[in-house]
Design a protein around this nucleic acid. Structure first.
Lengths: 183, 183
DNA sequence: ACCTGAACACCGTTCAAGT
DNA sequence: ACCTGAACACCGTTCAAGT
């Protein structure tokens, strides 16, 4: 019951069911049938554990379609959003994990390669992909934060969010901008 | 020594000097010469306090220049970044505070008005401004997270970050994209 | 190799009681 | 009106000791 991968998997299940606020070392240990201190034999600290959870979430993204950088990059953004929306509070967790510098899966790897193959410089590709990833993470974080407020009953559930329309607008903006900052 | 505004001001000073991780109710109370429980007479909880700190930070943004929506929106992004960089961990604090729904200062108010005046619909203006704010907050959060790692000596300080060049690239992308999604 | 027990140094928050 | 004292219910983390 106790290798690094199965601990991260249990943490992801706990995240899905209870949210980031309930993902404590003690709750996770209880879910694993173990004491909290046992986790520290496998991970040096909670930050490293959350980095592993982030890696697990981001590894679920499928490969990008061929057929032009525009389609590939748009698909990447849509799939990244889908992968984040599939797990409670995932955007907040992944943002923090990426900032910690302990992750091994970088969500911008694929679009950077696509943009470089389409002729942009390494720096331009990196910066454009970073801007896009920031938009997706920020957008989904806002979506999931509002979902938390609705679950906590501080917001009514009937307010039409238009989340997907706003997301598509941002995607369009970033693609049009990329096309206009020519390689 | 104890109205809401002066408590928020003391919290901002503590943030600047020690960072978000050290901004606890107990540390803040000590800085105010008071016990932690005293703060709860003025603010219902820490989230509300941090929302007031976010408002204080964002209130420092100067007015936008006239002379075309492009210049105004670019200036807004540059000034928002400057205001966030002026306070330790401000991007992370402001992101969390905006997500809490307890803030009163919305950083996108000015650019939304600019874009609407330039002919975009209310929804288009809102979505574009939101995409831009997400980029700025995400970019500065990454800058300040790296600064934390450097201070903690987990990263060397000599790695040239190119933060400003990457920021300008994103600004150019978003402006070009906005211009191409015509009103 | 892997886990427990027990502690350390913290948190945010509540609330009766003081002034 | 404003604050203290004291507690409650948690945290992440360490480390000797067990098996």
């Amino acid at each position: 019951m106790a290798d690094k991968a199965s601990i991260a998997a249990a943490a992801l299940i706990l995240l899905d069911e209870q949210g980031l606020a309930e993902l404590s070392m003690r709750h996770l240990a209880t879910a694993l049938g173990v004491k909290a201190s046992a986790i520290y034999w496998h991970y040096p600290n909670k930050t490293a554990l959350l980095a592993a959870v982030s890696d697990a979430i981001l590894s679920d993204a499928p490969a990008l379609p061929t057929g032009g950088w525009g389609l590939a990059v748009r698909s990447w953004m849509e799939q990244l959003r889908a992968v984040l929306l599939a797990h409670t509070d995932a955007a907040e967790l992944v943002s923090a994990a990426l900032a910690s510098g302990l992750t091994t899966v970088d969500p911008t790897t694929a679009p950077r390669a696509v943009l470089q193959a389409a002729g942009w410089s390494e720096l331009d590709a990196r910066w454009s992909a970073a801007a896009m990833a920031r938009f997706v993470l920020g957008h989904v974080a806002a979506e999931q934060a509002r979902k938390r407020l609705i679950v906590a009953a501080v917001l009514p559930s009937n307010t039409d969010p238009l989340d997907t329309a706003g997301f598509r607008h941002g995607v369009r903006l970033l693609l049009a901008g990329t096309a206009n900052v020519l390689p």
